[in-house]
Nucleic acid binder design. Sequence first.
DNA 1: TTATATGCATAATACTCTTATGTATTAGTA
DNA 2: TACTAATACATAAGAGTATTATGCATATAA
Lengths: 112, 112
Amino acid sequence: MYSSELIKGTLKTIVLKLLSDNQKMYGYEITQKVKDLTGDKIQLTEGALYPALHSLEAEGILSTEVVNIGKRVRKYYTLTKKGKSASEEKVSEFADFMNTMKFLLDIKPQVG
Amino acid sequence: MYSSELIKGTLKTIVLKLLSDNQKMYGYEITQKVKDLTGDKIQLTEGALYPALHSLEAEGILSTEVVNIGKRVRKYYTLTKKGKSASEEKVSEFADFMNTMKFLLDIKPQVG
DNA sequence: TTATATGCATAATACTCTTATGTATTAGTA
DNA sequence: TACTAATACATAAGAGTATTATGCATATAA
């Protein structure tokens, strides 16, 4: 696990990317997918994830579909058209940011 | 400029890395260095920077030295011994995190 | 039958950043 | 000379987001 502050601000980017690759996912599934894909290095908590999903839905970036699985309920999230471009923007912005950070953290000793 | 949420959580890492490369720096200098090195893409605000510097000092990661420049005051920050290892840890943790994120954001479409 | 996993959700708290403000010196410009 | 911008510190109110704790309910494995 990374220190929590590192992961701050990346939650929505991760969610949007996963949804752009998987068409439709539900909350619990997202937490498990991230856990699996990162070898437990990133574990999304429900207290962070659900409010984020709700706010993305309120922004019109995600749409929802409730499905009954036996007596249990699943709420699937899908990217809207707006969400698809939002996802691409977020991911490319993060890629750009990573390049900037890589440069910043690799810079060699300088005489100030 | 990146959206603010992207940069969240990276402030201390950036500060520690700059200090490991430049031995001693003062707050304003740090903001300018980051601005220059990133081509204005990252601009640290004072309201974020100074509290962070103070908390790093309180943790024993930074030590300070006040210097008078004419009638103006500069507060130089230096990494302590503890700070040097903290800096290395932070930077390598971030490098690891970037690898994880790169993988996560590059993954190809999957059949869920 | 009891713990764990699945699946949703919210509330109190803590933390960090933004925005605004404050003080003061120095340098450049109209 | 007066005004603005830059230098240099700092804090405080508010906003936003994550942590931690809690709650409800079903399904499965020990």
